[in-house]
Amino acid sequence: MSADWDVAVVGAGAAGLTAARVAAGAGLRVVAYERLGPGGQLVNLTTLHDHPGGTGPELTAALTAAAEGAGVRLAYAEVTRVQPGPPTRLTTSEGEVTARVVVVAAGLSPGRLGLPGEAELAGRGVSTCAACDGPLFRGRPVAVVGDDEWTATEALELAGHATAVTVLVPGEPRWSAARDRLLAAQQRVEVLTGAAVTALRGEGALSGVAVRTADGERELAVAGVFPFVGRRGPGGLVEGLAADADGRLVPSAGVLVAGDARAGADQTLAAAEADGRAAGEAAVAALAAGAGSLRVVDPTHGVRPEPAGAGAVAASTAAWTDVALFTNSKPNATELLRGLGGRLQAHWALPELGFAAKESASVAADPDQIDWLAQRFKMVLVAVGD
């Protein structure tokens, strides 16, 4: 099966970068797509409450460096459609590419209250990024709407700026006990359960919200509201892939899902990294399982004996897009290489092999051609003759 990439990762947040690094570390050709830049929501965190030390931007830089160091190519393009294969086809803002395995780590959409006037008040009191806009509300009260881990994280972020942070939970909190303890330790934070925002107040700028509770309606005077309800996963991105009620994807053969985009995922940084690691390992295993194995044969003495105590020969992940033949155009070298290529094709049942040759045996190889071979193929078999 030919493809542009062994693994394509949609999203370059904590889960996506980790998955890409693991797959590339196993020698696979990996590309990670992100519309703007790596990090996802991680870049907006000044404090990492469930990760040892550092800030969001610092961890983003470390994850990006590790992925690129392993050989991952970062592509700044938006993926709008994934069609499972083989090979799987990805429609991007830069054109169509193919991959043998796809990991979707696209995260969730921004929160949304779905109330009249919300769009008009965006940037004028309605925000979905505490780290971005929190400093604008220094010395003023704000509200946070939601019930999950990310809601609690953003409330903790805002507690460093606002005079008061009221967390409005539509039902009961779903965040972890660890998050609950952190919120309880913040004197500026109050959590109201069974509270739903029914209206936004203010013209030109937010002045408050109407809140419905079990005790009836009440007005809450706040300068900012941060909604984290209504966030949705990338449901519909992958043709034929099932999604839950919130648009989070259920993994299937050929398409892996990691991080917040996966149905049932925990919304913590540690869980995202673990999810990405598992997805990367699954991609490596899937490609290894679909490849044949290669025995070393000596042309004079036949199959070499296995060394004492040696285990089974590891499966190869070679495909025709990984292997190319290159000759200096001498007839004897070309004949030798073509013969070896034929044996490889027969062994792996491959439709074709890459092939390139110097224009003439008497001139130097074209540097551009050599660069192309190095970038396009994992294995280049070279034969020269006198």
Rank of each mutant, 00 (worst) to 15 (best):
residue 1 M to Q: 15
residue 3 A to P: 04
residue 3 A to M: 10
residue 4 D to G: 07
residue 5 W to N: 01
residue 12 A to S: 10
residue 18 T to Q: 11
residue 22 V to A: 03
residue 24 A to V: 04
residue 34 E to V: 13
residue 40 G to V: 05
residue 41 Q to H: 12
residue 42 L to G: 02
residue 43 V to K: 09
residue 44 N to Y: 14
residue 45 L to I: 03
residue 48 L to W: 08
residue 50 D to I: 05
residue 54 G to S: 12
residue 55 T to L: 01
residue 55 T to Q: 07
residue 58 E to G: 06
residue 62 A to R: 14
residue 64 T to F: 01
residue 71 G to R: 06
residue 78 E to S: 14
residue 83 Q to K: 11
residue 89 R to C: 02
residue 89 R to L: 14
residue 92 T to I: 06
residue 92 T to P: 07
residue 98 T to W: 00
residue 103 V to E: 09
residue 103 V to R: 11
residue 106 A to N: 01
residue 111 G to F: 05
residue 115 L to G: 11
residue 116 P to K: 10
residue 118 E to H: 05
residue 121 L to C: 03
residue 137 F to E: 01
residue 147 D to L: 08
residue 156 L to E: 06
residue 163 T to M: 10
residue 169 V to Q: 07
residue 174 R to N: 00
residue 177 A to T: 13
residue 177 A to I: 00
residue 180 D to V: 00
residue 186 Q to A: 12
residue 189 V to D: 06
residue 191 V to H: 03
residue 200 L to D: 08
residue 201 R to G: 03
residue 207 S to V: 12
residue 209 V to F: 11
residue 209 V to G: 00
residue 223 A to H: 15
residue 226 F to T: 00
residue 228 F to V: 00
residue 238 V to I: 09
residue 239 E to A: 15
residue 244 D to P: 06
residue 246 D to E: 15
residue 249 L to D: 07
residue 255 V to K: 03
residue 258 A to I: 03
residue 263 A to F: 08
residue 264 G to K: 07
residue 264 G to T: 00
residue 269 L to M: 07
residue 269 L to F: 10
residue 269 L to H: 10
residue 270 A to K: 08
residue 279 A to V: 05
residue 300 T to R: 15
residue 301 H to W: 15
residue 303 V to M: 03
residue 303 V to I: 11
residue 312 A to W: 04
residue 313 V to A: 15
residue 320 W to P: 14
residue 320 W to Q: 08
residue 328 N to F: 07
residue 336 L to T: 12
residue 338 R to V: 14
residue 346 A to F: 10
residue 347 H to M: 05
residue 347 H to S: 01
residue 349 A to W: 01
residue 355 F to W: 11
residue 357 A to C: 11
residue 357 A to F: 09
residue 358 K to R: 15
residue 367 P to S: 06
residue 369 Q to E: 12
residue 370 I to H: 08
residue 375 Q to T: 09
